[in-house]
Design a protein around this nucleic acid. Structure first.
Length: 773
DNA sequence: CAGTGAGCGAGCTTCCGCTTGACTT
């Protein structure tokens, strides 16, 4: 009999809290939500007031039955899920599914994981806040209705297995529209004038750089200006020095951690979360899914001590940050080291780097401002009204910059400012060199995973626990692809004035190179245009922000949740019906041209299996031919020649071992087929041109690799038993079933007898791929 | 795993937000 059962959401939290509470308390975790809407149909009873049909989530059945037993045996059950909308719903679902007696159930929330905070929580229990639960039900039901009515519409109108939802569809829209902006972007150029001057400083001379306060739109204007500057004098007209300061960024939230890990360490969003999870589970950092920039009092005092010891008291400045994020729920602290005295940790390289980043960011957030002195120097030109401006920056006190400086995204970067030599008003600097360089306006930046997360957070769309999954969903659905794209070279003009002579040079620069950026696919673009046309309201960037306001009203008891849902659903469902009736199949079909040999039309469009080419009209007597587009090709950019090439496969490359060697390309890319076996063609080989010799090489290589995978091969009567070295370790295959080799047995020394014993005593591993087809 | 896109019709796909292991060949 346990006296007290405390249920929290995460096992790592359970462990820590268990340590604080002593033996009268058993602390268990429920691993998040234990109940969810049924997946059979909508899971919502539309006719009867949108009543949700909840079931215990299949993967939580074990946990629920275990908790049920413990709850029966306990005097008190403490529901200690997070103090936000989702946490309240988790508590309520626990109470319902465990069948808890209201009289022995208490709802508490920890504001931080410290002994005193937990004690405080235990002393002030409350009941479940049904209004907050209802706000969650509204959120959940709305997402289900939107997702499960929009997706099937896409299956009918575009292609099976597609998906749409309040969050993912807006994420895709952002990427599609950014690409549109880039496509429509007109690059303009102007001549930027920079100059290098020299001043005398006693016996020594010192140089500095300045930029003209004007750009010239044509080369002629730039040349005219440089001509005028050829034989003139310059004078320092004004020197303006004023103090400035830089302040540190707040401690990490999930989204800012993802952004900085991407900029500074080059981590993908999911990689960052996986590493952070490991750090959390080993007790090194606080919880990694948070939207709060708040630090506990304990963290503040630890920071104070650490900074004072390492850098001295003048570097300490304790700050309280407050969140500016729309819809933040702040159920946790900011992400920080659990012990701020620990600067580096044990672990693998990426764990060390991420930890160090978190440590620096946390410490810097509690350090003094950096104090600077900014100087602006105006340089007049004797025969012109234009002015050169030189900018300088001197650091007077480094403050938090001693530890950490937040990186910027591409679109926020500006030039570096260095130190200026001493100079005085009236002084006449010597011109060393002046350069007029053609500069092009920058097209809008494509999103990276991390800048997309940043944008979603700004719009209040998605939550810390879903940023990484959203990014992966839109890629898995093939709405969006993350890839590198090569840049292109662009020529520009540069005119140099030096030693009183002008020289014009034509140079080239490489530009537009993209690394790990998000590009929309044909399907993404097509789905987006369909959704924005028929469901403009839901695809609006502020749709989530608007419904969040209503959820807040429900949480305050000012609005009845299922009435809010009814108000939403009635017009929404009409939009669905309207789209069903008034839209035919959407394929994005485009006529590319005609086949020069037969004269029939060649189209590109989205088919059941993705982008494809069609040769011949659908309604003609002869059946049209079809071929899928290759990876990297798109409806928008494919040429007629490229499209016609796609019909050249499959082709027979020749004969090997008296069987045909066929080259073709399937769902998983180009392959070689020989004696009904498949051999994947490496990326560097072009299926259209690959030779028989090369194809045979591929076959032989694969056979050799396969033979090394077989550790043993036994013949048991007629049956073949093999020990194979697979991707996840060795296993036994017999009669088309696979068997795990028990721990402690060395696969290399297995005998036939040993294999037979294993087969007799082991359940065959079920493979997921079997149910396919 | 491996070209498939006629038409018929079965049965499947799908949302967002909480949370971790179990499992794969």
């Amino acid at each position: 009999m346990t006296k007290n059962l405390v249920i929290v959401e995460s096992p790592a939290k359970a462990k820590t809290i268990g340590g604080f509470l002593g033996k009268d308390f058993t602390v268990k975790s429920c691993m998040g939500h234990v109940a969810d809407l049924s997946k059979k149909g909508l899971g919502v009873d539309i006719e009867n007031g949108f009543i949700p049909r909840y079931i215990v989530s299949p993967e939580k059945k074990k946990i629920v039955s275990e908790l049920k037993k413990l709850a029966l045996d306990s005097e008190w059950v403490w529901l200690a899920s997070d103090e936000d909308r989702e946490g309240e719903a988790i508590a309520w679902h626990l109470a319902e599914t465990l069948g808890l007696d209201e009289k022995k159930t208490k709802r508490i929330a920890f504001h931080e994981i410290t002994r005193s905070a937990i004690q405080e929580a235990i002393e002030s229990p409350r009941g479940i806040d049904k209004n907050l639960v209802n706000a969650q039900q509204a959120r959940r039901v709305l997402d289900r209705l939107v997702g499960f009515e929009l997706s099937p519409l896409l299956w009918k109108k575009i292609k099976p297995s597609l998906s749409a939802g309040r969050v993912q569809s807006v994420a895709v829209r952002l990427i599609v529209e950014r690409e549109e902006e880039i496509k429509n972007f007109q690059s303009a150029s102007a001549f930027r004038i920079t100059a290098e001057f020299q001043v005398k400083n006693g016996e020594k001379t010192a140089g500095f750089k300045a930029e003209l306060n004007k750009r010239f739109s044509t080369k002629e204007q730039a040349v005219d200006f440089l001509e005028k500057c050829r034989l003139t004098a310059y004078v320092i007209e004004d020197i303006d020095t004023r103090p400035a300061k830089k302040t540190p960024a707040p401690p990490f939230t999930t989204s800012t951690l993802q952004q900085e890990a991407s900029r500074k360490l080059g981590f993908s969003v999911s990689n960052t979360m996986r590493i952070a999870q490991a750090l959390y589970e080993s007790g090194k950092i606080t919880y990694m899914r948070t939207d709060s920039v708040n630090l506990s009092d304990l963290a503040l005092s630890m920071s104070h001590r650490e900074i004072a010891e390492s850098f001295g008291e003048p570097y300490v400045k304790i700050r309280k940050f407050s969140t500016k994020t729309k819809g933040a729920q702040e159920a946790h602290e900011a992400i920080r080291p659990t012990a701020l005295s620990v600067k580096t940790i044990e672990g693998d390289k990426s764990q060390k780097r991420l930890y160090e980043l978190i440590w620096k960011r946390t410490i810097a957030s509690q350090m003094a401002d950096a104090e600077l002195e900014k100087t602006n120097v105006v340089i007049g030109i004797d025969n012109s009204t234009e002015k050169f401006i030189a900018k300088g920056e001197v650091m007077k006190f480094d403050g938090f910059l001693k530890v950490y400086m937040e990186s910027k995204d591409e679109d926020e970067q500006n030039g570096e400012e260095g130190m200026l030599p001493p100079m005085v008003i009236g002084e006449k600097p010597t011109l060393l060199e002046m350069v007029a360089q053609e500069k092009f306006t920058q097209q809008p930046y494509r999103y990276t995973e991390a800048t997309l997360v940043k944008k979603l957070e700004e719009l209040g769309i998605g939550r810390p626990s879903t940023y990484a999954p959203i990014i992966s969903t839109i890629q898995k659905r093939e709405y969006v692809i993350k890839e590198d794209r090569p840049g292109f070279s662009r020529s520009f003009i540069q005119i140099i004035l030096k030693n009183n002579t002008l020289k014009e040079e034509h140079k080239t620069e490489n530009t537009g190179f993209e690394k790990a950026k998000l590009f929309p696919t044909d399907i993404g673009t097509l789905v987006n245009s369909f959704l924005t046309r028929h469901f403009g309201n839901i695809l609006e960037y502020n749709f989530t922000a608007n419904v969040e306001e209503e959820f807040d009203e429900i949480a305050e008891g000012k609005l009845v949740w299922n009435e809010m849902i009814r108000e939403f659903y009635q017009p929404f469902h009409k939009q669905i019906e309207n789209a069903l009736e008034n839209s035919g199949k959407v394929s994005g079909e485009k006529l590319l041209g005609t086949d020069p040999q037969t004269g029939v039309n060649v189209f590109v469009k989205i088919g059941r299996y993705g982008p494809m080419v069609q040769m011949g009209n659908t309604d003609s007597e002869t059946k049209p031919r079809f071929a899928s587009l290759k990876k990297g090709q798109s409806l928008e950019t494919i040429s007629l020649t490229e499209a016609l090439d796609l019909f050249k496969l499959p082709r027979v490359a020749g004969e090997y071992e008296s069987s045909e060697v066929v080259i073709s390309t399937g769902r998983f890319g180009p392959y070689v087929r020989h004696q009904s076996a498949f051999y994947t063609l490496p990326k560097e080989d072009d299926p259209l041109t690959v030779t028989l010799e090369r194809a045979v090489e591929v076959i032989v290589n694969k056979r050799q690799a396969d033979s090394q995978k077989i550790l043993h091969e036994f013949l048991d009567g007629k049956d073949l038993i093999r020990v194979i070295n697979g991707r996840f370790g060795a296993y036994i295959t017999y009669n088309k079933e696979n068997y795990k080799i028990p721990r402690g047995k060395d696969p290399k020394t297995l005998t036939l007898e040993a294999c037979k014993t294993i087969i007799a005593n082991t359940e065959p591993s079920k493979s997921k791929s079997k149910k396919k087809k």
